[in-house]
Structures are given as structure tokens and as C-alpha cells.
């Protein structure tokens, strides 16, 4: 892909799918109706281009699936599906890098597939559906992010610096999350470690 000759200082964010399409979220966050506003406006303010990653859960289990936990998704079948999705993403990231872009990944924290800093840990879920509480966020990454990271490693490529944004944050917590995101993006662009 020809990205343009004057792209040397630009930044591109690869966003996990539901951050731009909450409909892919299996109803975990019913208040979210469209692209997550504070996230998108922050990225736009900093001149960041947006690339939406494939919806790994939707492609594997469909739109009507039940909520999932990390343990439910951690199967050979889902991992193989994620592996297939990873190839075009690797190529796209490398194309942006070759054009001088700083590529970052932003996941949906708390997601069983797309979490970067936290994921949904519920070892007891499975079998007959019952009324459940919100899944417990636990430290760790979702299965899709984990497979994507491994695919980069297997190809001998550096995984983009990554962080997460939690769609389900209470309104009072959003400013802090936005501040953290801004800091992450600025530091990514200047090559500093967070």
C-alpha cells in the first residue's frame, strides 16, 4: 500500500474491533452505541490514523454469541482462527512502519479476546447458561492479542507498543484513562518507554 511520502512523523493506532464497533461486544456494554468518543477524539487530537482490527470473536462465534471468558476462548480452534487473522495484520503494520509510521495497538481492556492489560477471567463459566455477574477483570491479555503478539514474534517482528482502554469505565474514571492514553501515545511517538 502506498502510504504517502510525507508520513515520516505520523502515528497509526490499530484498535481492537469493538472500540469502534460496540455491536461486536456481545452486549457486555449496552450503553456503548458507536465508536468510543473519548478514545476516538483523543487519537484524532494527536493526529493519529485509525485502523480497526478484525473482530476475532464475531468471526468465530457470531454476533449472537453469549458472553465469553478468557478460559472459554482459550481453545485450539479459536487460536487457529486468530492465527489466520494475524497474517494480514502483520503485513499492514509492516507497511505502515516502512512508510515511517509509529504503529501502536490499543486493546479493549477487560475483554477475553482483546484485553491488553486486563482480561475476563471466569474459570467456572461454560455449559448451561445462567445469570452471571460481570466477569472479573484479571491481569493479563486476551487470547486474540496473545496470538497476535506471538505471530509477530514468530515472524521475527517487534510487536507494536500496546495499551488498553476499558469501554466499561465509569464516567468519573474516563479523564484519567484519557490522560494515560495521551501519555502513552506521546511517549510512543518519541520512542520513550512508559
Amino acid at each position: 500500500m502506498e502510504l504517502g511520502p510525507d508520513a515520516m512523523t505520523r502515528q497509526v493506532a490499530f484498535l481492537t474491533h469493538s472500540l469502534l464497533n460496540p455491536a461486536a461486544d456481545a452486549g457486555r456494554h449496552p450503553a456503548s452505541r458507536g465508536p468510543v468518543p473519548p478514545l476516538v477524539s483523543t487519537l484524532r487530537d494527536l493526529g493519529c490514523e485509525l485502523v480497526q482490527l478484525p473482530a476475532a470473536e464475531v468471526g468465530h462465534l457470531g454476533v449472537r454469541r453469549w458472553w465469553q471468558s478468557r478460559e472459554m476462548l482459550d481453545t485450539p480452534g479459536f487460536r487457529a482462527h486468530c492465527r489466520r487473522l494475524a497474517g494480514p495484520v502483520l503485513r499492514q503494520v509492516e507497511q505502515f512502519r516502512a512508510a515511517g509510521y509509529d504503529a501502536v495497538v490499543i486493546g479493549a481492556d477487560g475483554s477475553p479476546s482483546c484485553g491488553v492489560r486486563t482480561t475476563a477471567g471466569e474459570a467456572g463459566w461454560g455449559g448451561r447458561p445462567t445469570e452471571v455477574d460481570d466477569p472479573v477483570p484479571v491481569a493479563g491479555q486476551g487470547v486474540w492479542i496473545e496470538v497476535l503478539r506471538a505471530a509477530f514474534a514468530d515472524a521475527g517482528l517487534t510487536f507494536p507498543r500496546a495499551t488498553g482502554f476499558d469501554i466499561g469505565l465509569a464516567e468519573a474514571e474516563v479523564p484519567r484513562a484519557v490522560h494515560e492514553l495521551r501519555r502513552f501515545l506521546r511517549q510512543s511517538a518519541t520512542g520513550l518507554a512508559v
Binding site: M1, E2, H17, L20, N21, P22, A23, A24, R33, G34, P35, P37, V40, R44, L50, V51, Q52, L53, P54, A55, P88, V89, R91, Q92
Partner: peptide
Amino acid sequence: DLLAILGRCGFGLLQLPSHVAGDPEEGQG
């Protein structure tokens, strides 16, 4: 701002590959 419009109207985004990519299977495909 199309993403803001989508949000106001309750629509999620499915982002198509760039038309300058020359490859309809780039990215999400």
C-alpha cells in the same frame, strides 16, 4: 467527523480496506 455521527446515530463501524491498497483482503479484508 463521521465516527462522531455514527456514534450519535447508534451505528458501529466496519472499516473497509483502503481503496489505494490494491488488495481487498488487506487488514480486516
